Computed example of a mutant assay.
Amino acid sequence: MFASLPKALRVTLACLFLLANTVAHVAPLLLLTLVRLVLPLKGLRDACGAALVHIAESWLSVNGWLWGAFTRTVWTVEGTDGLVPRDNYLVVCNHQSWIDIPALQKVFNRRIPFMRFFLKSQLIWVPLLGPAWWALDFPFMKRHSREELARRPELRTKDRDATRRACEKFRHVPVAIMNFTEGTRFTQAKHDAQQSPYRHLLRPKAGGVAFVIDAMGDAIRHMLDVTIVYPDGPGTMMDMIAGRIREIRIHVRKLPIPGGMRGDYENDTAFRERFQAWINTLWTEKDERIGAMLAAGSR
Protein backbone atom coordinates (compact mmCIF):
# COMPACT_ATOMS: atom_id res chain seq x y z
CA MET A 1 0.00 0.00 0.00
CA PHE A 2 2.73 2.45 1.04
CA ALA A 3 5.72 0.51 -0.35
CA SER A 4 5.83 2.58 -3.54
CA LEU A 5 6.23 5.91 -1.72
CA PRO A 6 9.59 7.73 -1.89
CA LYS A 7 12.00 6.18 0.58
CA ALA A 8 12.33 9.14 2.95
CA LEU A 9 8.57 9.60 3.19
CA ARG A 10 7.96 5.86 3.53
CA VAL A 11 10.47 5.46 6.38
CA THR A 12 9.14 8.52 8.20
CA LEU A 13 5.53 7.35 7.94
CA ALA A 14 6.44 3.79 8.96
CA CYS A 15 8.24 5.01 12.09
CA LEU A 16 5.32 7.29 13.00
CA PHE A 17 2.78 4.50 12.50
CA LEU A 18 4.87 2.08 14.60
CA LEU A 19 5.19 4.65 17.38
CA ALA A 20 1.49 5.51 17.26
CA ASN A 21 0.53 1.84 17.34
CA THR A 22 2.79 1.25 20.33
CA VAL A 23 1.43 4.20 22.29
CA ALA A 24 -2.17 3.33 21.42
CA HIS A 25 -1.77 -0.19 22.79
CA VAL A 26 0.69 0.32 25.64
CA ALA A 27 -1.38 3.07 27.30
CA PRO A 28 -4.48 0.90 27.93
CA LEU A 29 -2.22 -2.08 28.67
CA LEU A 30 -0.49 -0.24 31.52
CA LEU A 31 -3.78 1.18 32.80
CA LEU A 32 -5.30 -2.30 32.94
CA THR A 33 -2.16 -3.53 34.69
CA LEU A 34 -2.72 -1.01 37.48
CA VAL A 35 -6.32 -2.22 37.82
CA ARG A 36 -5.09 -5.80 37.94
CA LEU A 37 -2.66 -5.01 40.76
CA VAL A 38 -5.41 -3.75 43.10
CA LEU A 39 -8.10 -6.33 42.35
CA PRO A 40 -8.77 -8.55 45.39
CA LEU A 41 -9.98 -11.72 43.62
CA LYS A 42 -7.72 -14.09 41.68
CA GLY A 43 -10.46 -14.73 39.10
CA LEU A 44 -10.68 -11.04 38.29
CA ARG A 45 -6.89 -10.74 38.09
CA ASP A 46 -6.82 -13.71 35.71
CA ALA A 47 -9.48 -12.06 33.52
CA CYS A 48 -7.36 -8.92 33.39
CA GLY A 49 -4.35 -11.02 32.44
CA ALA A 50 -6.27 -12.51 29.52
CA ALA A 51 -7.36 -9.01 28.44
CA LEU A 52 -3.73 -7.85 28.55
CA VAL A 53 -2.78 -10.65 26.17
CA HIS A 54 -5.59 -9.66 23.77
CA ILE A 55 -4.26 -6.08 23.76
CA ALA A 56 -0.74 -7.34 23.04
CA GLU A 57 -1.97 -9.58 20.22
CA SER A 58 -3.82 -6.64 18.69
CA TRP A 59 -0.61 -4.61 18.91
CA LEU A 60 1.31 -7.35 17.09
CA SER A 61 -1.40 -7.73 14.45
CA VAL A 62 -1.18 -4.05 13.55
CA ASN A 63 2.62 -4.26 13.46
CA GLY A 64 2.34 -7.24 11.11
CA TRP A 65 0.00 -5.27 8.85
CA LEU A 66 2.49 -2.39 8.83
CA TRP A 67 5.33 -4.67 7.65
CA GLY A 68 3.14 -5.73 4.74
CA ALA A 69 1.94 -2.22 3.95
CA PHE A 70 5.32 -0.46 4.00
CA THR A 71 7.69 -3.11 2.61
CA ARG A 72 7.87 -5.53 -0.29
CA THR A 73 9.54 -8.18 1.85
CA VAL A 74 8.67 -11.67 0.65
CA TRP A 75 7.74 -14.02 3.49
CA THR A 76 8.33 -17.73 2.87
CA VAL A 77 6.95 -19.70 5.82
CA GLU A 78 6.71 -23.48 6.15
CA GLY A 79 5.37 -25.72 8.89
CA THR A 80 2.76 -23.59 10.68
CA ASP A 81 -0.22 -25.77 9.73
CA GLY A 82 -1.82 -27.56 12.63
CA LEU A 83 -0.59 -25.25 15.39
CA VAL A 84 -3.10 -24.72 18.19
CA PRO A 85 -3.54 -21.37 20.02
CA ARG A 86 -4.55 -23.15 23.24
CA ASP A 87 -1.61 -25.57 23.37
CA ASN A 88 1.69 -24.85 25.13
CA TYR A 89 4.95 -24.71 23.20
CA LEU A 90 8.64 -24.25 23.81
CA VAL A 91 9.92 -22.30 20.80
CA VAL A 92 13.63 -22.62 20.01
CA CYS A 93 15.21 -20.63 17.20
CA ASN A 94 18.55 -19.58 15.81
CA HIS A 95 19.33 -15.88 16.28
CA GLN A 96 20.41 -13.80 13.28
CA SER A 97 19.16 -10.27 13.79
CA TRP A 98 17.03 -7.89 15.85
CA ILE A 99 14.45 -8.51 13.12
CA ASP A 100 14.02 -12.08 14.38
CA ILE A 101 11.62 -11.09 17.15
CA PRO A 102 9.11 -9.06 15.09
CA ALA A 103 9.38 -11.68 12.33
CA LEU A 104 8.49 -14.50 14.72
CA GLN A 105 5.70 -12.42 16.26
CA LYS A 106 4.22 -11.79 12.81
CA VAL A 107 4.34 -15.48 11.88
CA PHE A 108 3.05 -16.91 15.18
CA ASN A 109 0.68 -14.23 16.46
CA ARG A 110 -2.68 -15.90 17.24
CA ARG A 111 -1.45 -19.20 15.76
CA ILE A 112 0.06 -20.17 19.10
CA PRO A 113 -0.27 -18.65 22.58
CA PHE A 114 1.30 -15.24 23.13
CA MET A 115 5.07 -15.71 23.18
CA ARG A 116 7.10 -14.76 26.22
CA PHE A 117 10.85 -14.20 26.06
CA PHE A 118 13.45 -14.29 28.81
CA LEU A 119 14.80 -10.75 28.70
CA LYS A 120 17.92 -9.09 30.04
CA SER A 121 17.04 -7.16 33.20
CA GLN A 122 18.30 -3.88 31.68
CA LEU A 123 15.52 -3.99 29.06
CA ILE A 124 12.89 -3.14 31.64
CA TRP A 125 14.08 0.50 31.28
CA VAL A 126 13.29 0.65 27.54
CA PRO A 127 10.66 3.42 27.17
CA LEU A 128 7.12 2.07 26.69
CA LEU A 129 8.26 -1.44 25.81
CA GLY A 130 10.01 -2.26 29.10
CA PRO A 131 6.93 -1.59 31.27
CA ALA A 132 4.76 -3.38 28.69
CA TRP A 133 6.95 -6.49 28.83
CA TRP A 134 6.78 -6.38 32.64
CA ALA A 135 2.98 -6.03 32.54
CA LEU A 136 2.77 -9.07 30.25
CA ASP A 137 4.80 -11.21 32.68
CA PHE A 138 7.95 -11.44 30.57
CA PRO A 139 10.69 -12.85 32.85
CA PHE A 140 13.66 -10.51 33.36
CA MET A 141 16.98 -12.21 33.97
CA LYS A 142 20.32 -10.88 35.10
CA ARG A 143 23.22 -12.02 32.96
CA HIS A 144 26.46 -12.67 34.78
CA SER A 145 29.95 -13.05 33.43
CA ARG A 146 32.00 -16.16 34.10
CA GLU A 147 34.15 -14.09 36.45
CA GLU A 148 31.09 -13.02 38.48
CA LEU A 149 29.82 -16.59 38.67
CA ALA A 150 33.24 -17.80 39.78
CA ARG A 151 33.26 -15.21 42.60
CA ARG A 152 29.60 -15.70 43.53
CA PRO A 153 28.32 -19.18 42.58
CA GLU A 154 24.98 -18.41 44.27
CA LEU A 155 24.09 -16.22 41.30
CA ARG A 156 23.50 -19.40 39.28
CA THR A 157 20.83 -20.39 41.78
CA LYS A 158 19.13 -17.00 41.52
CA ASP A 159 18.76 -17.29 37.74
CA ARG A 160 17.50 -20.85 38.05
CA ASP A 161 14.97 -19.82 40.70
CA ALA A 162 13.80 -16.90 38.54
CA THR A 163 13.23 -19.35 35.68
CA ARG A 164 11.23 -21.64 37.93
CA ARG A 165 9.07 -18.79 39.25
CA ALA A 166 8.28 -17.64 35.72
CA CYS A 167 7.47 -21.16 34.55
CA GLU A 168 5.26 -21.81 37.59
CA LYS A 169 3.17 -18.80 36.58
CA PHE A 170 3.03 -20.02 32.96
CA ARG A 171 1.80 -23.48 33.96
CA HIS A 172 -1.70 -22.08 34.51
CA VAL A 173 -2.22 -20.19 31.23
CA PRO A 174 -1.65 -21.05 27.55
CA VAL A 175 1.89 -19.98 26.78
CA ALA A 176 4.66 -20.21 24.22
CA ILE A 177 8.09 -19.74 25.78
CA MET A 178 10.67 -18.44 23.33
CA ASN A 179 14.35 -19.32 23.61
CA PHE A 180 17.19 -18.17 21.35
CA THR A 181 19.33 -21.16 22.19
CA GLU A 182 22.61 -19.66 20.99
CA GLY A 183 22.19 -16.94 23.63
CA THR A 184 23.29 -14.15 21.29
CA ARG A 185 23.03 -13.06 17.67
CA PHE A 186 25.21 -14.86 15.15
CA THR A 187 28.25 -13.02 13.84
CA GLN A 188 31.25 -14.47 12.08
CA ALA A 189 33.53 -13.09 14.80
CA LYS A 190 31.56 -14.91 17.52
CA HIS A 191 31.49 -18.05 15.38
CA ASP A 192 35.27 -17.99 14.99
CA ALA A 193 35.89 -17.21 18.65
CA GLN A 194 33.75 -20.20 19.69
CA GLN A 195 35.32 -22.46 17.07
CA SER A 196 31.74 -23.51 16.40
CA PRO A 197 31.43 -26.91 14.71
CA TYR A 198 28.42 -25.60 12.75
CA ARG A 199 28.66 -23.68 9.52
CA HIS A 200 25.75 -21.28 10.10
CA LEU A 201 25.23 -21.42 13.87
CA LEU A 202 26.87 -20.67 17.17
CA ARG A 203 27.13 -23.41 19.78
CA PRO A 204 23.76 -23.98 21.51
CA LYS A 205 23.40 -23.32 25.23
CA ALA A 206 21.33 -26.24 26.42
CA GLY A 207 20.94 -25.24 30.07
CA GLY A 208 18.17 -22.68 29.58
CA VAL A 209 16.10 -25.08 27.48
CA ALA A 210 16.58 -27.85 30.05
CA PHE A 211 15.49 -25.64 32.96
CA VAL A 212 12.30 -24.57 31.15
CA ILE A 213 11.35 -28.14 30.18
CA ASP A 214 11.94 -29.37 33.72
CA ALA A 215 10.13 -26.45 35.38
CA MET A 216 7.09 -26.68 33.09
CA GLY A 217 6.78 -30.44 33.54
CA ASP A 218 3.86 -32.05 31.72
CA ALA A 219 2.33 -28.62 31.06
CA ILE A 220 4.51 -28.33 27.96
CA ARG A 221 4.78 -31.32 25.63
CA HIS A 222 5.85 -29.88 22.28
CA MET A 223 8.79 -27.96 20.94
CA LEU A 224 8.64 -25.74 17.87
CA ASP A 225 12.04 -25.96 16.21
CA VAL A 226 12.18 -22.71 14.21
CA THR A 227 14.83 -21.84 11.64
CA ILE A 228 15.04 -18.32 10.25
CA VAL A 229 17.25 -17.12 7.41
CA TYR A 230 17.71 -13.95 5.39
CA PRO A 231 18.94 -14.93 1.89
CA ASP A 232 20.51 -11.48 1.39
CA GLY A 233 21.99 -11.43 4.88
CA PRO A 234 20.55 -10.23 8.20
CA GLY A 235 19.99 -6.54 8.76
CA THR A 236 18.73 -4.08 11.32
CA MET A 237 15.22 -2.92 12.18
CA MET A 238 15.88 0.20 10.11
CA ASP A 239 16.82 -2.01 7.16
CA MET A 240 13.44 -3.70 7.58
CA ILE A 241 11.55 -0.41 7.78
CA ALA A 242 13.46 0.97 4.80
CA GLY A 243 12.59 -2.08 2.70
CA ARG A 244 16.14 -3.40 2.38
CA ILE A 245 15.21 -6.87 3.65
CA ARG A 246 13.96 -8.47 0.45
CA GLU A 247 13.06 -11.91 1.81
CA ILE A 248 12.61 -13.72 5.11
CA ARG A 249 12.43 -17.51 5.12
CA ILE A 250 11.11 -19.34 8.18
CA HIS A 251 10.84 -23.09 8.67
CA VAL A 252 8.90 -24.59 11.60
CA ARG A 253 8.73 -28.18 12.73
CA LYS A 254 6.69 -29.38 15.69
CA LEU A 255 8.48 -32.00 17.79
CA PRO A 256 7.42 -33.92 20.89
CA ILE A 257 9.61 -33.34 23.91
CA PRO A 258 10.95 -36.80 24.82
CA GLY A 259 10.15 -37.93 28.35
CA GLY A 260 13.81 -38.63 28.98
CA MET A 261 14.63 -34.95 28.46
CA ARG A 262 13.21 -33.86 31.83
CA GLY A 263 15.64 -33.93 34.72
CA ASP A 264 18.17 -32.14 36.91
CA TYR A 265 20.48 -30.52 34.36
CA GLU A 266 22.69 -28.86 36.93
CA ASN A 267 23.42 -31.80 39.24
CA ASP A 268 22.88 -34.95 37.15
CA THR A 269 25.95 -35.35 34.94
CA ALA A 270 24.54 -38.25 32.93
CA PHE A 271 21.31 -36.38 32.22
CA ARG A 272 23.22 -33.21 31.29
CA GLU A 273 25.33 -35.11 28.75
CA ARG A 274 22.25 -36.81 27.31
CA PHE A 275 20.38 -33.51 27.04
CA GLN A 276 23.33 -31.76 25.40
CA ALA A 277 23.59 -34.59 22.87
CA TRP A 278 19.90 -34.16 22.02
CA ILE A 279 20.24 -30.39 21.53
CA ASN A 280 23.43 -30.83 19.51
CA THR A 281 21.61 -33.24 17.20
CA LEU A 282 18.83 -30.69 16.70
CA TRP A 283 21.47 -28.06 15.96
CA THR A 284 23.24 -30.26 13.42
CA GLU A 285 19.93 -30.75 11.62
CA LYS A 286 19.22 -27.03 11.81
CA ASP A 287 22.62 -26.19 10.36
CA GLU A 288 21.93 -28.44 7.37
CA ARG A 289 18.46 -26.92 7.01
CA ILE A 290 19.87 -23.39 6.93
CA GLY A 291 22.21 -24.40 4.11
CA ALA A 292 19.28 -25.80 2.13
CA MET A 293 17.10 -22.73 2.82
CA LEU A 294 19.84 -20.36 1.72
CA ALA A 295 20.42 -22.37 -1.44
CA ALA A 296 16.70 -22.30 -2.20
CA GLY A 297 16.61 -18.56 -1.60
CA SER A 298 19.37 -17.98 -4.13
CA ARG A 299 17.59 -19.72 -7.01
Rank of each mutant, 00 (worst) to 15 (best):
M1W: 07
F2Q: 04
L5T: 04
A14N: 01
C15H: 08
N21S: 10
V26S: 06
A27Q: 06
P28G: 08
L29K: 02
T33H: 12
R36F: 04
L41Q: 10
G49V: 01
A50P: 02
H54G: 11
A56W: 01
L60S: 02
V62Y: 07
G64S: 15
W65E: 01
W67H: 01
T71Y: 00
T80V: 15
V84E: 14
D87L: 12
H95Q: 11
S97G: 06
S97C: 07
Q105Y: 04
Q105C: 07
S121R: 13
Q122C: 06
I124R: 11
G130K: 06
W134A: 13
A135V: 08
D137H: 15
H144L: 08
L149K: 13
E154Y: 10
R165H: 11
A166R: 04
E168Q: 13
V175N: 04
N179F: 07
F180R: 00
G183S: 09
Q188I: 13
A189L: 12
K190S: 10
K190N: 10
D192V: 07
Q195A: 12
S196Y: 02
H200L: 11
V209R: 01
I213A: 05
G217Y: 01
G217W: 02
R221L: 10
R221M: 13
H222M: 09
L224Q: 02
D232H: 09
G235Q: 06
M237G: 08
D239W: 05
A242H: 07
R249Y: 11
I250Y: 04
H251Q: 13
P256L: 13
I257R: 02
G263F: 01
D264V: 14
R272N: 07
F275E: 08
F275L: 12
L282V: 11
E288R: 09
I290D: 04
L294T: 09
